[in-house]
């Protein structure tokens, strides 16, 4: 079987399209590369969805934590503490458990025990907490001059936040947020390791990598392939975030643009 046929058969196997049965003997390098790559679809799906939805909640939580009203501040603080203070591993376990009990009471929760929804929710909450803390830190570092200038221009309330505070916060938080995005994509590899079961051998990249490691009894081929895919993914994430970063900083004079770079390190999760 040529490698092209393998791609046709297994390229979308992780979504249930193509060959129904996984290869069972005479494993080729091509099969491993294709199937592990197919599993990456799920890692990207989890990562992108959690990142996009988590961004909105993170902003809300960060603003909430910066409020003086304890009714808003306390829940935000607790949310961040709970999700930043416990291992993702344990969060997956409890989420699966909770969704199971909810499911037995309300049919609405039926899809929640599937990884595509349940794990996405956990990752969404997790990244919202981590990014929320990063944004909160950035919110506190927004230069006083910026907000004073906004006041002077007659900006207030929502407009001031939308036009002045928020963009500055993002600019300050961006390098650390990039790191968070990298961590989030890495965390997607944990989905099928703990808690959520794989249905009909549709799993993420790590699922297929461990399938091959188990079948060939040789961990030194599939896991480095997996590592290679993740390095590529990390590079893509870094470059996309780099483009956004340049956009966020485009109004600054050239020599100041490099300034926030050190924050990349300091605010890393």
């Amino acid at each position: 079987m040529s490698c092209w046929e393998t791609i046709a058969d297994y390229g979308l196997r992780s979504l249930g399209i193509g060959e129904r049965l996984l290869p069972r003997s005479d494993f080729t390098l091509c099969q491993q590369v294709v199937l592990i790559g197919s599993g990456m679809i799920w890692n990207i799906y989890f990562g992108v969805l959690a990142l996009v939805t988590g961004f909105a909640l993170a902003t809300a939580v960060a603003v909430g934590k910066a409020q003086s009203n304890p009714l808003i501040r306390k829940p935000s603080e607790w949310f961040i503490f709970l999700f930043r203070g416990s291992p993702l591993f344990i969060q997956f376990f409890f989420a699966y458990f909770a969704f199971l009990s909810l499911k037995s009471a309300y049919p609405f929760f039926d899809p929640f025990t599937s990884a595509w929804l349940g794990a996405t929710i956990v990752l969404f909450l997790n990244t919202a907490a981590y990014s929320g803390e990063i944004f909160y830190g950035a919110l506190l570092s927004v230069p006083k001059g910026d907000t004073e200038a906004a006041d002077a221009y007659g900006f207030s309330g929502w407009r001031k936040f939308r036009r002045i505070t928020w963009p500055t916060m993002l600019r300050l938080a961006w390098p650390a947020y990039t790191n968070e995005a990298i961590f989030l994509f890495h965390a997607t590899a944990l989905v099928f390791v703990s808690g959520f079961p794989a249905r009909q051998q549709k799993g993420d990249a790590l699922y297929y990598a461990s399938y091959f490691a188990d079948k060939t009894f040789n961990p030194f081929v599939p896991y480095p392939i997996l590592a290679g895919y993740f390095i590529l993914l990390t590079l893509v994430v870094i470059s996309i975030f780099g483009v956004v970063n340049r956009r966020l900083n485009r109004h600054l004079p050239q020599e100041r643009r490099t300034r926030p770079r050190f924050r990349a390190a300091t605010l890393m999760r």
Binding site: L21, L22, P197, Q200
Partner: peptide
Amino acid sequence: AAHVAEGDAALLEFA
């Protein structure tokens, strides 16, 4: 797990 995957049932795999 391999046996179930070959049959008509939907396989659900746990660690």
